[in-house]
Design a protein around this nucleic acid. Structure first.
Lengths: 138, 138
DNA sequence: TAAAACTTGCAACTCTGTTGCAAGTTCTTG
DNA sequence: CAAGAACTTGCAACAGAGTTGCAAGTTTTA
């Protein structure tokens, strides 16, 4: 695990530091998306709030994680199962939010259906947010 | 217009007040979604920030407007073209955000395609956020 | 029209996110 | 592997978004 983390960071030309390692470790160990507050809690408040913000910002820029617009307008971040560091652009994504447990999951198995917009609209990115009840809460 | 506004408010058991009338008027006159800040600006800062928040909250609860999750995680509100006050639940929605002019539009003409989620997931609501270039900016 | 019910504005506060800067850590390269 | 360059962190201070309690004001009801 530590080795994989180092590899990802180096691959993205980032110095290997305690904060980055810990936060990346969290994402790797997690199957659902994390909000900023989750990260602070899970790191045991060992890192400054600012460090967490900056780390997330950096990971976003490098494409290690991506942000998810949720239907309650809070911000969540997730690592994708397929390798985000390989330049996959997340242009088309399905996310699932469980209304019972609150978990937010990337649904990689499903491809985003094609939408036919009215004449004159150019599509760059499609995000789909499906709200409902997840496998575990059903 | 004033008559229509009164009708909508009364229909939802809300007192007809200056703030509510003005804000509803804004939504009726607008074809794209509004953020809280847009509303404050467009009302000429005539109403307290708190009043605007509370009015939006009330309109949301009554189903007069709905909130839109945007891909930059800001909050926007919109009235739908078909009558939201008639109990239409906004379960399936397509929203378009223009990356040039920033406008957020409800695309009512397009229905949300069916997604087949993995076994065990129950769908309640589907929101689709399409980012791209709108008709006017193309 | 008067009382009841609701809405508004104010002040004060919390929570989220950002910036500048000095101190500390990591990386580079001889 | 040591020393300097480059980058990262924590702190303090701040800006903005959103919330709450409460008293004063407005709207509704009867």
């Amino acid at each position: 695990m530590q080795e994989q983390i180092q590899k990802i960071l180096k691959h993205n030309q980032l110095s290997v530091t305690g904060g980055r390692t810990k936060i990346l470790e969290l994402f790797l160990a997690q199957d659902d998306a994390l909000a900023h507050a989750d990260i602070e809690r899970k790191t045991g408040e060992k890192f400054d709030r600012v460090t967490v913000y900056r780390t997330l910002q950096t990971f976003l820029e490098k494409g290690i994680i991506h942000s998810i617009p949720t239907s309650d307008n809070s911000v969540k971040y997730a690592l994708c199962k397929d390798n985000c560091s390989e330049g996959h652009h997340h242009d088309h994504h399905v996310h699932f939010m469980c209304s019972v447990c609150g978990k937010t999951l990337c649904i990689d198995e499903v491809s985003v259906p094609v939408v036919n917009l009215p004449e004159g609209y150019k599509v760059e990115q499609i995000q789909m947010i499906v709200t409902g009840v997840c496998k575990d809460c059903a």
